[in-house]
Design a protein around this nucleic acid. Sequence first.
DNA 1: GCCAACGTTGGC
DNA 2: GCCAACGTTGGC
Length: 191
Amino acid sequence: PSEPSKASSPSPSKPPTAAPSNPPSTRNYWLMKAEPNTRLENGHDVKFSIDDLAARTSPEPWDGIRNHVAKNNLLAMRRGDLAFFYHSNCKVPGIVGIMEVVREATPDESAWDSGSAYYDPKSGPEKRTWYLVHVEFRRKFREMVGLRELQEYKGRGEALEGMQLLKQSRLSVSKVEEGEWEFIMGLAEGK
DNA sequence: GCCAACGTTGGC
DNA sequence: GCCAACGTTGGC
């Protein structure tokens, strides 16, 4: 695993209490889905699990997002934002760990590569419809926080009542409110 | 711009 | 494999 591509310690001229470049108050939180099981798309296996991400030695381009609501979430991501890694389309779906956005949105060139898994004939270098961000592995939970468990808290007045994942279950990149993030972290750490 | 038909996602 | 919930397409 690579080192975080963060700046080193603050310069001596700054007070020790200097705010980090992306303090919690301005950090946004997200949830991104990937499929841990083999599935063929345009002849390519799109399998990608948290263990695959953890094994990467350079930032991972999160390509293949072909939905405009998900794309708008990608475009709103800022370096330093954190995202849950969610395993979908598998026997036990759920949140399995955390990654960090290390590079903001750039065009997803796989969209105009006719040989790629995510080819979109309506886009091209002159029509950059789709974007990706780069992410890095941060941690894997000792035990996943399953979708079933999340759904226990989606009722009126409960912690995950408004969670985008639960309201728009087909969205592959969704926003997580800070309170939702902290609640889910509590579930993960309680295991 | 409406909307019926069709396609996709993803939990179950 | 089923199907609900969306999203997209295309005729009008």
